[in-house]
Design a protein around this nucleic acid. Structure first.
Length: 572
RNA sequence: UGGGGUAUCGUCUAAUUGGCAGGACAGCGGAUUCUGGAUCCGCAUGUCAAGGUUCGAGUCCUUGUACCCCAACCA
């Protein structure tokens, strides 16, 4: 078959739908064989012990996306079985993030909703002789478990009678015992080569208040026991999780088989997302927040959904990213450039342009009348002028330009401003540098130019070509603004591999600049996005005030000159 | 050293199930441009290794190698 003949799903891919992957293959096959009666029911099951990150976004897009594509359902389920680490605050943050990403769940559940049912299942297991109450300490349990190469040894309580187990469980539940004195364990196989099958604990005593059930319980079910049964109770068809739960699947199936539940969902594992130059475990992210390496869960440097939102990323960009990286089972480390591409690609057509000077250098037009000024017209979206209209910008004799846009001794290929060189001031005039003034350190403090009055708007009357165009703001009208530049949080691609990941934090991940912005930007409401021409995409931050807006750089523009300059340097 | 997994351009990911190894990002070159942006065109780069089966192997077989996960009363 010719390669130019489109395959059936090529159109779907082009239409923006997610691509093919092994999970969709499994579902197609299940639908073909009628395994779940053609039903597709997924769930996104976060533990409310931290904020969601980009790795969760991948899972969210997968689970909700599958439900949408197959006309199924997707629940939001909080896996809240550990009262010590969980909090209502995280529940609210997670709900907000999922909605912001553009998904709405069919039903919201909490594992804690199932505590009574789960307790009954534990009783049933005991009655079946498939679980027992164990009095071993956590250390003892660990020792009895053996190692990966040596079998474990049975707990002395393994053959406790059903009646005694039932009595002990009831008393555990009544609060008769202290934390750590007893656990309920599944009775499986202490010599099983799969460590997860060596009589895993399913209930532990924790005299702690739960954010939803308060003090109603002092015993809490554990993950393996809770998760499969929650899935079953919700009649989930495809229980999608990450690869590290692969060993748990045998246990997942064991509980459901042993308890002979009506619905036996299928657990399917996929490789979690790793993003270069950041960490993705909630444990480490929590550490960054608690030890104040960042300013909170929503710090724009964080890989959290909240951080990316504040940074200016859009839900569309994040969704596109999650679809483009695909779903597979091999370990991966996704390039930061790929995420940034998705962000630029989304922002480029929908964000208006503006001018801001981040590192100001004064430019004086010697032949422009002192004390006079004029108003020029700038187009908000040059690639499609009618679409976002135009705005006016004030111009006068003294301006600020970017320090980077002037070089006293221009290097090869530099076509911005330099002594004797002519450039275009964006939307304004052509200017030629005639002299510079310097301070006592030899630092250039002012650039003097003459302008061509016949080039108003930026087009010279004689049609001569000027290679360089630079941005500027009128010194008399410029508004001060704080600009926050973000860089990768870590200096190495895989900080997780480091002994101490905090040792490789990037000290320059945040740079705060005192910038000048064009007047139209002064009152930008928080959340408004702009492309500062030639620099990048920015979003107005809630920290801004009426007289002093704050802009976060979402992502820089690709910089061809920086690349060229770097190549020149390495060449010698 | 036990068990469970995974290996395809630098990166992410496909390959109609044994039939020309494709796409995207990154890179490089060119065109174009009032953003060194965007856009357009083009180029280069890959099947973990060694054997075997076959007209034909990324795909099947054998033997290796590398990496990931599992010994929390976390999820």
């Amino acid at each position: 078959m010719s390669s130019s003949t489109p395959r059936p799903d090529d159109e779907a891919v082009e239409a923006g739908a997610a691509g093919r992957d092994f999970i969709r293959d499994i579902i197609d096959e299940d639908n073909r064989t009628g395994k779940h009666g053609g039903r597709v029911a997924t769930r996104f099951p976060p533990e409310p012990n931290g904020f969601l990150h980009i790795g969760h976004a991948k899972s969210i897009c997968l689970n909700f996306g599958l439900a949408k594509e197959y006309g199924g359902t997707c629940n939001l389920r909080f896996d809240d079985t550990n009262p010590l680490k969980e909090d209502e605050r995280y529940v609210r943050a997670i709900e907000e993030d999922v909605r912001w990403l553009g998904f709405e769940w069919d039903a919201e559940f909490h594992a804690s909703d199932y505590y009574p049912a789960l307790y009954d299942f534990a009783v049933k297991l005991i009655k079946q002789g498939a679980a027992y109450v164990c009095s071993l300490s956590d250390e003892a349990i660990r020792q009895y478990r053996g190692t990966v190469t040596e079998p474990g040894t049975p707990s002395p309580d393994r053959d406790r009678s059903v009646d005694e187990n039932l009595d002990l469980l009831a008393r555990m539940r009544q609060g008769e015992f202290d934390d750590g004195t007893y656990t309920v364990r599944a009775k499986i196989d202490m010599a099983n080569p799969n460590m997860k099958m060596r009589d895993p604990p399913i209930y532990r005593i924790r005299h702690a208040s739960h954010h939803r059930t308060g003090d109603a319980w002092c015993i809490y079910p554990m993950y393996d026991f809770t998760h499969c049964l929650s899935d079953s109770l919700e009649a989930i068809t495809h229980s999608i999780c990450t690869l590290e739960f692969e060993n748990n699947r045998e246990l997942y199936d064991w509980f459901l088989d042993t308890l002979e539940v009506q619905y036996h969902p299928q657990q399917i594992e996929f490789a979690r997302l790793s993003l270069a130059y950041t960490v993705m475990s909630k444990r480490r992210l929590l550490r960054l927040v608690e030890d104040k390496y960042v300013h909170g869960w929503d710090d724009p440097r964080m890989p959290t959904i909240a951080g990316m939102r504040r940074r200016g990323y859009t839900p569309e960009a994040i969704r596109a990213f999650c679809e483009k990286i695909g779903v597979a089972r091999r370990d991966n480390l996704v390039d930061l450039a790929f995420l940034e591409y998705c962000v630029r690609d989304d922002l480029n057509p929908k964000v208006p342009r503006a001018m801001a000077v981040l590192r100001p250098l004064k430019l004086i037009i010697d032949n422009y009348p002192e004390g006079e000024g004029e108003t020029l017209t700038a187009i908000n979206f040059p690639d499609d002028p009618p679409r976002m209209g135009e705005r006016t910008i004030p111009f006068c004799r003294e301006l600020y330009i970017e320090r980077e846009d002037f070089m006293e001794k221009p290097s090869k290929g530099y076509f911005r401003l330099a002594p004797g060189k002519e450039v275009r001031l964006r939307w304004a005039y052509l200017v030629t540098c005639v002299s510079v003034t310097k301070d006592e350190h030899g630092e250039v403090t002012e650039v003097h130019c003459t302008y061509d009055p016949e080039s108003r708007g930026g087009s010279p009357a004689d049609g001569r070509k000027v290679k360089g165009t630079i941005h500027w703001v009128s010194a008399a009208h410029a508004r001060p603004a704080e600009v926050r530049l973000y860089d990768r949080l870590f200096t190495v691609p895989s900080p997780d591999a480091e002994e101490d990941f905090t040792a490789v934090l990037n000290p320059e991940s945040l740079q705060v600049l005192e910038a000048f912005v064009e007047p139209s930007l002064a009152e930008a409401a928080p959340g408004l996005r702009f492309q500062f021409e030639r620099q990048g995409y920015f979003i107005a931050d809630p920290d801004g005030t009426k007289d002093r807006p704050v802009f976060n750089r979402t992502v820089a523009l690709r910089d061809g000159w920086a690349k060229l300059a770097k190549a020149n340097v390495t060449q010698g």
